[in-house]
Each structure stands twice: as structure tokens, then as C-alpha cells.
Design a protein around this nucleic acid. Sequence first.
DNA 1: AGATAGTACTAGACAGTCTAGTTCTCAGGA
DNA 2: TCCTGAGAACTAGACTGTCTAGTACTATCT
Lengths: 238, 238
Amino acid sequence: MGEHVVDAGRAVEDGGRAGVGTDPGPRAAPERGRSARKRQAILDAACTVFLRDGYGGTSMDNIAALARVSKQTVYKHFADKQRLFTAVIDGVIDAAESDGQEMLDGLLTSGDLGEQLRHYARRHLAVIMQPHIVQMRRVIIGAADQFPELARSWYERAPARGRAAFAALFSELARQGRLRVSDPELAAEHFNWLILSIPLNRAMFRVDDEPPAVAELDYYADEGVRVFLAAYAPALSR
Amino acid sequence: MGEHVVDAGRAVEDGGRAGVGTDPGPRAAPERGRSARKRQAILDAACTVFLRDGYGGTSMDNIAALARVSKQTVYKHFADKQRLFTAVIDGVIDAAESDGQEMLDGLLTSGDLGEQLRHYARRHLAVIMQPHIVQMRRVIIGAADQFPELARSWYERAPARGRAAFAALFSELARQGRLRVSDPELAAEHFNWLILSIPLNRAMFRVDDEPPAVAELDYYADEGVRVFLAAYAPALSR
DNA sequence: AGATAGTACTAGACAGTCTAGTTCTCAGGA
DNA sequence: TCCTGAGAACTAGACTGTCTAGTACTATCT
């Protein structure tokens, strides 16, 4: 229910990495002007409401009320509802992109490959199964007919970017003789979906279920890696 | 565009074979009364429009117009928009269920397992990637917040049913020593998603792409089976 | 002075109802 | 087999109430 992913409620000034909006996280300096603060409050509120109720289910009045801002101010910052929506989604995509950025660190060391992949898979699955990410998927899929370019942009920037990194990684591992991969892109897709598919698809359709336990997710991650290695690792590497 | 998937009964007056005279359906008379014909026309129109525009994007006037029926008649047959929507989705689920029913015939013979699974996988993927099924997934996911029980019903009846059949099949194959499966449910999920995930998820987000070519789908099916067998087949069965 | 709040307003969409008049269906009589 | 009439089903469109995107205007704040 109440997700408040983005820290929603409060304005910018809490040090949390709240700003899912247009503000890139790491480079602090959250625009200290009043106008910028209002803008951020609007983005945060819009993110909360859009993610909770979808595009069609959200009214501009709701957003303004949650942001504690007058409707006029909303329209001062964002020309119309569509632009506000795309601004919100773009912000989330940016956040997701930089999230994934740091993920592949520490891989490619020469430890136990299975161990490393399991570790990575668990993290990956845990990130993707965060409630607000799941909600985001639902909202974007539901609005894909109205915002095709936005949906495509999500697909190409958020998940596909991660898979490209996978592909590069598997390519390198194949070069080192630690994996047997002929099509790295395909291997990356297989790895990705072996880990994510089961819980993610269930989450798409079973809305009011409580999110699955960590242990369950870890199980899916480990089993996905097991299948992946069976297909892509030379016989020796177990 | 015009999918007209819906139910047993064909549409009313689609230009082709104007079957008002004698058109005995595949089985069971399609309710020859005027009222039943109107009802079916409404369902067909509603299916088209709901699938194209989603729940929120569809108006009852649109449906009535497309069905060439007065709005009053729509409300004579369906108490309100929600009930019409659930009737449409239920119809599609029923159709999908009986579609999948006949699928597992011919498996379990003692031919080449890889061959058989590849054949099956290709069919499965081709069915799921039909445009109206893909659209259905999108619409249900998008409306899942408003209709949680409907989304759950879809999940449990349409895809989960198929996976249960898989699981039983893999169980039997394991008993015969042709597969090495400890958790048949998990194996069924892995099989299912190894085949479907890549094109299906792309289709979720890339709305206006033309559907992938058959050869591409077959490639994904075959590669999915390859990975599956590597993980679940005793070393000999390649 | 410029941004914002608050609120009232416009314009249009849509679910669902109502009414008055029309068409179809079908039983039963010739 | 054809006719007929009663009643159910249907049509067309106006209508109500509600909701919402977006605008206008004035008072207030910083």
C-alpha cells in the first residue's frame, strides 16, 4: 500500500537520497531555492501517487494536495499532466540506471564463479523486487499504449542497460575460459530471466500479496544460477 | 487492430460469411436468439476496445457504437462497466484455458526428448505471443490495482494451469529416468520462462514494434530448451 | 517584485438513467 | 403455410451528476 518510495512526504531537505525526480542523487546540492524545493515536492508527490494509482487514476488535484502546493504552482512547473508523468518516470529511470551502475564491481575477481554469481543474483533480484520498482513496472506497462516512447525508453535504459553489462561480463568470462558462451547477449537474457521471472511475474498479477520473503527470493536466485551454470559453465566448474 | 478473439460464438455480422442463416458453431449452438446475438456482439466489441485502449481508456459509448447497439442494450445485458470488463476477461481466460488443454497430447512418447520439447516450446511461445494475448497481459497488469481478484484469477487459471501440466509432465519424465528433476514445479517455471521471458517482456514495453518473426521466436524457444536440458537432463541425453 | 495559495471557473468527458418510439420474435389462429 | 398481435427487446438521444484538466484572479508571503 503506502509505498512512499521517494521519501514522498517531506520536501528535499532531509539528507536521504530521496530525490527520484530530476535531481541526480550523488551530486547533492538539491537546488536550495524555494521554487526548486516546490518543484521537487511536486515530483515526489507525483511519484507517490502515479505509482500508487497509475496514470489514469491520478488527478492533478491529488498531486497538488499531497505536495502541499497549489494547483497553479504545479502548472507553473509542468505544462501538463503528461509532461509531469514523463518527468517522474524519467527521474525513476535515471535513479535505476545509477543504481545498477555500481553493481558489477567486485565481479571478475578469480574467486568461485558460482559463489560470485549467486551473490550478484541475490542482489539483483532483491533490487528489482522492491515494491516501488514492481509498481513502476505495472504502471509503465499499463500506460504503454498511451506513452509508447516512455515505455520503450524504460525498456532500453533500465533493464536493457543491465543486460548489456551482463553480456560484457559474460564475454570476458568466456575469454578467460570460465564460461562457455557463444552468444553473450542471449546468455545475459537467460541469466536475467532465470533469476527474475518467477517472482516478478507473480508480483505483476498478485497485487495484494505481501512481498515474498527474502529467503524465498534467495532460493529463486540460487536456483536460477544453478541452471545458468549447468548450461553455460564448462563441465568442471560444477 | 481488430482482434475479435472472444468467445465460442462468432461475431454477429462481420462482413464475411453472414451466417444468420445457418451457422452451426464448432460445438453447441451459439444461442440463436436476437438477444443472445446482441450480447455476443457487445462482448466482441468490448473485447476489441478494452484490449486496445485498456479499462480506463474505454467508454461504454465506444463499445455500444462498435457493437452497433444502443447504450441501453449494453446496460440491459451488463449491469455496469466493471461487470462487462470481467465478463470479457473471463471469456478470454476460458478460451485460453481450452486452448492449452490439447497441448500436451503426443508428448511422453519415447522419441527424442529434445525434439519433442522443442516442438512443444515453439508452439507454446507462438500461442503466448499472439497479439491479443500480449495485449491481454498488458491490460490486466495495468488494471491489476483496480481488479486484483481478476488479475489473480488470470494468473491462477491461464498461466499457472499450464505450468501445473508441465510439472506433472516433468515428474513423469523424471520417473522414467529421462529427466533429473528434484522440484517439478520449479522446473516447470524454469522451462516456461526460459522460453517466454525474452520476447514477452520485450513485447510488454515495445508497444508499437511489429511482432517478432516466427524464426526469431523459434530461436528463443530452441535456446530455452537447450538451457533447460543442460540443467535438467542426465548427461547422456545431450 | 515575483512566487505562491486559495478558490472559483470553464469546458469536456463519461457512467449510468430515462423516455418515447420502433423492431423483432413467436405463439396461436386461419 | 401464411397472418396477426402482444410483449419483449431494441434504438436514439437527451439528461443528470460527477469528475477532471487546465485557467483566471486576487490575496498573501518572502
